[in-house]
Structure formats: structure tokens, C-alpha cells
Design a protein around this nucleic acid. Structure first.
Lengths: 244, 244
DNA sequence: TGAAAAAGTAATGTCAGACATTTAAAGTTT
DNA sequence: AAACTTTAAATGTCTGACATTACTTTTTCA
């Protein structure tokens, strides 16, 4: 570990950056124990409170975990796909909601990424993925379903499609894109008729994936994207008409 | 803000989760000032030190920023694409290096995602994107280039390709995938001959993008993926042969 | 009158020391 | 040998103080 970095920032931020670099560079390996808070305080010549603030920063990024007790301490954490996904979803969601990203842009990105999974998913999907897709399609047909529940089912359907590719890196990357879209999708009210159109496309996509027909699955996603964009334009135009 | 959450965790984690929920849900909006540390301490009935640890957690996720001085305090931060990307790259890099993700899996994910951008990039790229791609290709031809520099140039080339799609959400999502691959790519030694093959494919891809030929660009990426996988297999097999 | 200088003030940043709590290991008893 | 007790080392939390920063207000003086 070097002991100097980015002056003019908080001490706790500097210390966190220092330790983070040690982890990213591999100088500290997974499950290795960091020195105790008291030792770190001595080493960096700061108080224990400042060290603790630095460690909390790292914990917030899942870079370390802490354990109490005699043999406890801070340990380099093995980042799990689950934890990374959760963080990515939070970040992506806020990014979209805070930066005036248009529905069009987000939707385009989402479907472009999903189309990247379609050929792989058609090749490798197993019966479990197919079952989830079929079950969600069935759920989407329930008439008393709220718009939020419909969107949640939609997310589950697409998650199954993505997971079918059998590539955890791809699933991780896509989780952010798909889930972050949900708040935007929730802004849309789905009429019975628009739901039917979406469900029909979902059936076509599920059929293509089951038949291991990658191009057909991609085409289905393209059609679904067009349908979604049209629907969104209609909803937003209507809303604008009412308020303006 | 509600005032209860996940018992059996640190107080600072609970408080951070509480405030994070308020931000994600929109109860706290961008640039809004949080209560002062002293007020938060009163509200959550903890000490100021505990509140500070919670705030540092949020700061580590770029959810808030703090300002000193009389009118200072903690403010809800507008997450920028830049900050989000930086975090995503850190997380993705560690995820790959800590979880024994095979080169094959990571490479497949990367090229699948890039192919998602190809049609859009072919449609929308401007002269700047083309120029960057051409410049990087030229740089990759320099004979005295180190493997690391070659990989860095490769990343720049692919970033230009991705940015050409003109979709910031897509660029953000791809940044993690492309940059996180770099440490893995750096493990590969590039012979003059393998470099020539890669450069030839880069030329083909740049040509396709310039000619606005999406399918050709996708095909080029597929060929590049195959070439990279072959190259990696050869390098790893050779290395195994030497040590075992 | 007006601009510069000084004082005031409220916030975060840092420190020191204490105590509470948890946990594993060492020691003791039965 | 098993069960209980003690010990020790670590994190978690609290209190109170002081340092630093930066905006606001007041004062000074040309």
C-alpha cells in the first residue's frame, strides 16, 4: 500500500481510495484481513473515527465486510454477481431518473442489449427458462392485473430470456438495463388492447427461443421494441394534451 | 422518510438504507439538502459519529455530496454518466477477477453486447467516431507498441464504436463490459502475426461502420470474437504446457 | 455612500477517550 | 472428556471538544 493520494479531499476518502487501489490491484486478495482499525489509524496517522469512515465507504461498495469479535476485523470481500447486480440496478435506476433520459433512448438501449442475448439464449436455454417465460405470459393475461404487476411480470419474462443465454456476465450487465427501465415503464398505463399486443409478441419470442430460432427471437424483440415505443409515444402525447 | 429498517445490521447501515430509499423513491430530490448531521442524529436517536458513517456510505455510492461551511451540508447528488461508469468499471473489473470468470465467458459477453451497438453505430456514427477508429488502428500498427498499450488502444477503438451509436445509456452499459475485460486481455501476449489479424478485422469493422453497413459490422465483430477466442486458447494452452 | 475588512455563525472534518457488545480461544471445573 | 467460565481482541457506539470552512452580517474607513 502506498500512503499518499489525491490531496484536498477528506482524509477518509483518501484512505478509502488507498485501500481500494490495493484491492483492485490485487495487493490485497480475497478474504485477506485488513489491519485492525487501531492499526490503520496508527499507520495513516489519523483517528480511529476517520479510519472507520473510510472502511464504511468501502463496505458500501461491497469491497470489504466486517466481523466483530476477537478474530474479527475487515476482510476483502469476494464481490458476488448478486451484490454487483443490486448495486448496478440502484445506480442505473437513479441515472435514468435523474438525467432526463428519454423513454425512447432507454428503451432503445434495453432492446438492443436484449437482442444481443437472443441468439445465445435460443442456443442454450433450458426447460426452466421456457417454463418461466410461459408462466409469466400466462400471468400477464390476467385481467385484474395492475399496471405495476404487469410491468414486474414483464421484467421477469425478460430476465428469463436473458438468463437463458447461460452467461452470468451477460445476465449481470443486462440486469441493470432491464430493471432500471421499470420505473419508466410504470409510467405507462396499459389498456387491455395494448396488453394483448405485447402478450402476443411475448408468445412469439418464447416460441422462437423454444424452437432455438435466434433470428426469429431477435425479430420478435425488434417488433416488441417498436410496439413499446409506439405505445409510449401515444401515452405521453395524450398526457401532454391533457395538461397543456 | 420512514424510521425503521433491517434490524440486526449496523445502525449506520440501517440509516444509510433509510436515506437511500428516500432518494431512490424520489422523496428526496436532486440537490435537496439533507438535515444537518446533528439533526439527523437527533432524528434517528444516534450519535453524530454514527450518522457520519451512514453519510459516508452514501457518498461512496455518489448518492450525496457534502459541502462545508455555514450553508453547507449533505446534498442529494445528481449521478453523472461519468461517475456511474467509473463505479461500474470498478465493480465489473473486480467481479471478473474475483469470480474465476473464464476468458471465454467474458469475451462472449463483451462481443455480444458490442454487436448490439453495431447496427445503431453504423446508422448514426459521425466523422469523429470514424477518425478515432482510424487513428487507433494506425496506433495499433506501431511495431514497438507494448501489449498493454495495444490493449488500451483496442479499448479506445471499441469505445468509439460503441459511442457511435449515440445512445448514452448504451455507452454507459458497455463501458463496464469493455473496460473490465482489459485486465484479462492484458494477460495475452500479442505476436506480430496475431496483431496483424486483429488489425485487419478492425479495418473491416471501421469500413463497415463508415459505409453504414450494420450487418457487415456485426459480422466483423463476430470474426474478431472468434479470432480473440482462438488466440486466447492458444496462449493459455501454451502457458499450461510450460508450467505443467 | 460604498467598498473593503472584520466579526459572527453554522455547518462539516477531525480527534481523543470511554464504554458496550460480540466472538473465539484459553482456562477451569466437574 | 465435556461443560462452563474467564479472558482478550476486535468492532460498534457515544460524548464532547476543537479545527476548518465558507457564507452572512456588521463594522470600519476612505
Amino acid at each position: 500500500m502506498k500512503t499518499s493520494l489525491v490531496p484536498s479531499a477528506d482524509l477518509s476518502a483518501q484512505i478509502a481510495a488507498n485501500i481500494r487501489d490495493a484491492i483492485v490491484s490485487g495487493a490485497l486478495i480475497v478474504d485477506e484481513r485488513l489491519p485492525s482499525e487501531a492499526e490503520l489509524a496508527l499507520k495513516f496517522d489519523v483517528s480511529r473515527a476517520t479510519v472507520r469512515e473510510a472502511l464504511k465507504r468501502l463496505a458500501a461498495q461491497s469491497l470489504i465486510r466486517t466481523q466483530r469479535g476477537a478474530t474479527g476485523g475487515a476482510f476483502v470481500n469476494r464481490i458476488s454477481f448478486e451484490a454487483a447486480q443490486a448495486q448496478q440496478i440502484t445506480t442505473s435506476t437513479l441515472l435514468l431518473s435523474m438525467n432526463d433520459v428519454s423513454f425512447e433512448t432507454a428503451c432503445e438501449a434495453r432492446y438492443a442489449l436484449e437482442r444481443a442475448c437472443a441468439p445465445l439464449s435460443a442456443m442454450r436455454r433450458n426447460s426452466n427458462h421456457i417454463n418461466v417465460m410461459r408462466d409469466e405470459i400466462k400471468a400477464q393475461g390476467e385481467v385484474e392485473l395492475s399496471d405495476e404487476a404487469f410491468c414486474a411480470s414483464d421484467v421477469a419474462f425478460h430476465r428469463a430470456l436473458v438468463d437463458g443465454a447461460g452467461n452470468p456476465v451477460l445476465s449481470y450487465q443486462l440486469a441493470g438495463a432491464v430493471e432500471a427501465m421499470q420505473p419508466l415503464m410504470n409510467m405507462i398505463t396499459f389498456t387491455a388492447r395494448s396488453r394483448d399486443a405485447i402478450i402476443a409478441l411475448h408468445v412469439a419470442i418464447a416460441d422462437a427461443i423454444e424452437a432455438q430460432d435466434g433470428p426469429a427471437a431477435s425479430a420478435g424483440l425488434t417488433a416488441l421494441e417498436a410496439e413499446t415505443q409506439t405505445l409510449a409515444r401515444r401515452v405521453f402525447a395524450q398526457r401532454k394534451g391533457h395538461t397543456g
